[in-house]
Design a binder for these strands. Structure first.
Lengths: 348, 348
DNA sequence: GTGAAAGCGCTAACAC
DNA sequence: GTGTTAGCGCTTTCAC
């Protein structure tokens, strides 16, 4: 017997007086092997609790059975729900998941993608960082043959599978509800101007205004280039809105992070919600219904988005499709109208 | 020139008419190499945008420069903060981070650890799943030479570095505040009975009772074996508490998940907080101050815990210490006394 | 049905 | 200072 500190095919082969290729065949359910031999090998491998080395296998096969995920931050409850969806689909297919964060930074995002590719992931799921405008580096990687599926904050320039929420409808309905409740001057605070998410939600917002015979006012539209993570983005936006002659009586906040931050800030300023200003946002936080006042929000199907995106990626990986018709899946959102937008709170 | 679809040392060596070892040396800043040759190689490598294959390097070196993390779920804000701390320390040392979730299940946890070891991580950071009681499998892995640092929910049985919050003090102070506010009958709801976290927080709770001349009542102590994630754990616990002859007038909830869930349930039942029952919990959610009523809570230093644990792990990895004196670091917690425990809410 | 041998991309003795 | 060689653990021709 060879020393037992590291169990390898070689050791098993030596102990059993066979060749490594036979052992390899037995363990991978290869058909060209004697049933008795196979049983003997499997029994011994089980006894030693042998687990084939993934790294060696990856190097040899060129496939790691791992998919990489790049998103802004797991601290955002929406994304942590997405992760659970991704895992559920991946594990079912015997794939591993490696989660990385871009913290809304282009440089970090690029670094994470580089890490993932160098670690031979079989495909990448990603939601772009707020700070990302140039995606040529992704296009290059995709063209080199690595499947990429985009979700949430997607890139319009790259042709690939995409999964998004119905951002337009969510924003349209939320804004419409504010207007229907009697608010006249609905402001808009969102993430970066160029993001797909912002663009779509903005369109929904504008449509609702138009449909109510309101002409959009540039001054009541605010963007946060760092999705509200930068020092004074939120504070400045609110300050500016409240200094307007025609001060807004409602705000539609278009991202999860911006929604919580704006809510926090307004509460800190001891401005009455919804009497002085009504709020309707986007959030997946389970605490939204427990805040004071309960926060009206558009809820995105996080789990489903992750699951669907992972399924599409796995399909690309397994079937090695290069010239597929790529599709964009749009998932429905749910509206929760609560006290912060002037509605009556109904818990549960 | 060799075909350019895959850039390897071999290709560079061929193109430059050198040996792969020379290329390897140049790229790894080896000293035994001619400065001019080195520059030529680096220039060409840069031109091709060459990135050495991590998998091959890992197989060869036996080190992946990656640390694995196992925790219950990133959906818990405390853990997502821990992750950010881990990343900050790891990136600084040029290490990658691979995050996995156990969802409080022993089997999943074991599977994740197996995945990580087979993928040759250089060390593991872990907080035990609620469902884990037998840690012999971890002991085996650690004894085989893989460094493991425990954080948050730790294992008393394995000798290794550990990082925890001051659970005893947090629980003691929280319970004391409830008692000082005039509540007479403070109940306790926590995660699984055997968890290190529960044990310590329970001890703090009991100490506070004793110090106030109160004898603990078994009937007002509830455990949730799945940390509140299982169907009716929370509902049953609350039902039982409220059916007692001597109904509690306050509840100390001892984990992040249990705290939010209990709060949610009490609000749904339309029981007045704190008038009918006061609440004091453990949570890292940033929305705690915005709930109604604002939720009194013990806040753990998530970022610091992750950072410290990662630093200790990296120290074990880099210095290859096998016979170190292992230490347990206890980090201070912060108390936020708010309206749910009968205090006045102060925002900000 | 089984074994021998080559090689995935890289590093590290060891020669020269 | 540079090249040759072996080998990390695995899979896969290709013989037999």
């Amino acid at each position: 017997m060879l020393p037992s500190n590291k169990i390898t095919l070689k050791k098993i082969a030596h102990d059993l007086n066979m060749s490594t290729s036979t052992i390899s065949r037995a363990l991978r359910d290869n058909h060209e092997i004697n049933a008795v031999t196979k049983e003997r090998i499997l029994a011994y491998a089980r006894e030693l609790n042998f687990r084939p080395d993934t790294i060696a296998r990856t190097l040899r096969n060129g496939k790691s059975k791992t998919i990489g995920v790049v998103l802004s931050t797991v601290e955002n409850p929406f994304y942590s729900q997405v992760i659970n969806g991704i895992e559920s689909a991946a594990y079912q297919s015997g794939y591993n998941v490696c989660i990385t964060q871009s913290h809304e930074s282009y440089d970090l995002e690029k670094m994470q993608v580089a890490h993932l590719t160098r670690n031979s992931v079989d495909g990448i799921l990603m939601s772009l960082a707020a700070g990302t405008t140039d995606t040529t580096y992704l296009k290059r990687i995709k063209d080199a043959g690595l499947p990429i599926v985009f979700f949430d904050n997607i890139d319009q320039g790259i042709d690939s599978h995409k999964v998004v929420a119905d951002n337009f409808k969510g924003a349209f309905e939320a804004t419409s509800q504010l207007l229907n409740s009697g608010y006249k001057n609905v402001a808009f605070i969102s993430g970066p101007a160029n993001n797909s998410i912002t663009v779509e939600r903005m369109a929904g917002y504008l449509k609702a205004l138009t449909q109510n015979g309101i002409i959009a006012n540039e001054a009541t539209i605010k963007y946060c280039m760092h999705d509200g993570e930068n020092d004074c983005e939120i504070e400045n936006a609110i300050d500016e809105l409240f200094l307007l002659d025609n001060r807004p009586d409602a705000i539609f906040t278009a991202t999860d992070n911006v929604s919580t931050k704006v809510f926090q800030s307004i509460r800190r300023r001891e401005i009455q919600i919804p009497d002085e200003v009504a709020l309707f946002g986007f959030t997946n936080s389970k605490l939204a219904e427990l805040t004071f006042p309960a926060l009206s929000a558009v809820h995105q199907p996080g789990f489903e988005m992750g699951k669907k995106a992972a399924e599409m990626l796995l399909d690309l990986i397994k079937n090695n499709r290069s010239n597929t018709e790529y599709q964009t899946v749009v998932l429905p959102v749910q509206l929760f109208s609560r006290a912060s937008s002037g509605s009556i709170t109904i818990l549960g």
